[in-house]
Every structure is written in structure tokens, then in C-alpha cells.
């Protein structure tokens, strides 16, 4: 018998509205790219058929990525806050788990971008003394985010230690 150890997924999922938000963000990035490719094909080339096929595949691919990636992210992105630590998971191809103990948290920030605000979402960033240790929980309902930030601040105040 041999024990295999794995990390369990954090308890909570991102807010379901995150899928719509990420889709909008991906579209903002990808639609101009696809449009530029089509426009370049239309105006700059002799419009050979084979190149047209390539351009169409490219443009459709861009849009497909913009629609699929957010759903994939939603499936992997999870978070959890216990009395001892903040724990997150993210990443589609490269999975990344982060753990930051309460005793080392120095700063708790909430942020809401313009598109994020449309969907009523907010992000909470937890910073430790390390330059590499910031843990970000993206796409929370903005009220949940505010509550979480307050709770984190309360816990970190109650936890002794000089946070280095």
C-alpha cells in the first residue's frame, strides 16, 4: 500500500456571471484580431481561395477560443477561505494552486474593472510580505467580495505575528 497525495479542489466556485464577463473580455480582445485578419485579406491581397479558407478558419478559431476559454476557466477556477488560510486554484493548461496563511497577510484589496462592474463582480487580492505571494480571487459577486475582504481584515488583525 502506498499513499498518493493530491490537492483537493477549493470549496467555492467563481460566480456564474464570471463566464459572461470573461466572454466579453475575450471578445474585446479577439473580435478586432479576427476582423483585422478578414479586412487585411479583403483589401491587401488578390483574394485567392486557399488564403480565404485559412483566414476564415483563423477568424472562426479566434471566436471559438473566446467562447470556450471562459467556460474552461470557470470549471477550474475555485477558491476557499478558512480561518487559517486563503486557498485558490486556477489555470486551464497549467494548474496553479496558491495558499497564503492568515498570519502572513499584509494587505487585502478589492478591485472592480469597468466591464466587471457591468456584471456586478469584483476581485479580492490578498498580499503577503513576499513579492511573489499575492493571491487573487477573481470574479466574486461584489457584495460577497466586500464581505470577504472585511472578514479577511478582521481575521488578520486577530492573528498575531509580524507577517514576515
Amino acid at each position: 500500500m502506498r499513499a498518493t497525495t493530491t490537492l483537493r479542489p477549493p470549496r467555492h466556485q467563481a460566480d456564474p456571471r464570471a463566464v459572461a464577463w470573461w466572454t466579453v473580455q475575450w471578445l474585446i480582445l479577439m473580435v478586432p484580431v479576427a476582423a483585422a485578419a478578414v479586412a487585411a485579406y479583403w483589401t491587401l491581397t488578390e483574394r485567392p481561395v486557399w488564403l480565404g479558407a485559412v483566414v476564415v478558419v483563423f477568424a472562426v478559431g479566434c471566436l471559438a477560443v473566446a467562447l470556450v476559454a471562459p467556460r474552461a476557466s470557470y470549471r477550474v477556477e475555485r477558491w476557499e477561505v478558512t480561518d487559517q488560510a486563503v486557498y485558490t486554484r486556477k489555470g486551464i493548461l497549467t494548474h496553479t494552486w496558491q495558499v497564503a496563511p492568515m498570519s502572513r497577510i499584509q494587505r487585502v484589496d478589492t478591485a472592480r474593472g469597468p466591464v466587471q462592474r457591468l456584471f456586478g463582480l469584483a476581485a479580492v487580492t490578498v498580499t503577503t510580505a513576499s513579492s511573489a505571494g499575492a493571491v487573487k480571487i477573481e470574479a466574486l459577486d461584489h457584495e460577497v467580495a466586500a464581505e470577504l475582504a472585511e472578514r479577511l481584515i478582521a481575521i488578520t488583525h486577530a492573528t498575531p505575528g509580524d507577517a514576515t
Binding site: T94, Q98, T128, A132
Partner: peptide, 29 residues
């Protein structure tokens, strides 16, 4: 002062991962 565990697609296939200890000192992790 925390852990970051990363597992890339290829690492996952070979059963490996990278464990990174974050700290306030030196280069941070």
C-alpha cells in the same frame, strides 16, 4: 509565507509538479 504549486500540462502527464515556497526574503519565492 505561503505556497504556490504549479503543474503544467506536460508535468501532469509525467506526474511531476513544481512546489514554490513564497517568502518575504531574497527573490520572493
Amino acid at each position: 509565507s505561503g505556497w504556490t504549486v504549479t503543474e503544467s500540462y506536460f508535468q501532469r502527464r509525467s506526474g511531476l509538479l513544481t512546489v514554490s515556497a513564497t517568502t518575504a526574503a531574497g527573490k520572493g519565492h
